[in-house]
Simulated scan of single mutants.
Amino acid sequence: MSGATREGTEYAVPAGVLGLKGPVEKPAPGTLPLRGDLAHIALAGSHLAAHYVIPHQRTVGAAGAELRLAPRADSEAFTTLAAGSRFELLDVAGEWVWGCPGPQGPSGWCRASELATEGA
């Protein structure tokens, strides 16, 4: 993906924006939507990842959503997203989804059932 743009998205990557210029400090877990295997497309010009993902726009359900660092019930929730707020889904693993409210974070795992049903 060398400077390509993805038309029709909020996170189009402008031509020439790719090309990291040296080491970048690794953000703390749960901050930016960045993992070793993937990252939010908006981070393509500033952080290196194996894959960049264009998020699927979702909405947090009526009870809110608890973000966790791991996709497990015994992983402590570090923040709660308000009901009706935006959730950018980046990955799905069974009953768990990984994402963020936006490219600035925070990012984490929540149960898919904590998101509003599409089209509802």
Results as ranks from 00 to 15, higher is better:
Thr79Pro: 13
Glu10Leu: 13
Pro29Tyr: 02
Ala12Ser: 08
Lys21Arg: 15
Leu18Gln: 11
Pro55Trp: 07
Thr117Met: 14
Leu32His: 00
Leu43Lys: 05
Ala83Asp: 03
Gly19Glu: 07
Glu25Ala: 07
Glu95Lys: 10
Gly64Asp: 04
Gly119Leu: 01
Leu38Thr: 10
His56Arg: 14
Gly3Ser: 10
Arg35Met: 10
Val53Phe: 05
Tyr11Ile: 10
Gly84Ser: 06
Leu67Asn: 03
Val60Ala: 03
Gln104Ile: 10
Gly64Arg: 04
Ala93Cys: 12
Ser107Glu: 02
Thr79Asn: 11
Gly36Glu: 07
Gly94Leu: 04
Val60Tyr: 04
Gly8Cys: 11
Glu88Trp: 02
Gly22Thr: 02
Gly105Ala: 02
Val60Phe: 02
Thr80His: 09
Glu114Ile: 09
Gln104Ser: 07
Ala50Glu: 06
Met1Glu: 08
Pro101Trp: 08
Arg72Pro: 11
Val60Asn: 05
Thr5Ser: 15
Phe78Glu: 03
Asp74Ile: 13
Glu95His: 10
Ala65His: 05
Arg58Lys: 12
Thr80Ile: 06
Ala70Val: 07
Glu118Ile: 14
Gly102Val: 05
Ala62Met: 10
Glu114Cys: 09
Thr79Ala: 13
Ala44Gly: 07
Arg6Asn: 11
Gly30Asp: 01
Glu66Leu: 12
Cys100Pro: 08
Ala82Phe: 03
Gly102Ser: 06
Gly45Leu: 08
Gly64Glu: 04
Pro33Thr: 00
Leu69Pro: 09
Ala28Trp: 06
Ala93Trp: 14
Ala44Arg: 06
Ala4Gly: 13
Pro33Asp: 00
Thr59Phe: 11
Gly105Gln: 06
Gly84Asn: 09
Pro103Thr: 00
Leu32Glu: 00
Tyr52Cys: 06
Ala73Asp: 13
Ala49Ser: 04
Ser46Ile: 05
Thr117Cys: 14
Glu66Phe: 07
Ala82Met: 07
Leu90Ser: 11
Pro101Glu: 02
Gly3Met: 12
Leu69Ser: 09
Ile41Gly: 02
Val53Met: 03
Asp91Gly: 15
Thr5Arg: 15
Pro101Met: 04
Thr80Tyr: 03
Phe87Leu: 03
Arg72Ile: 12
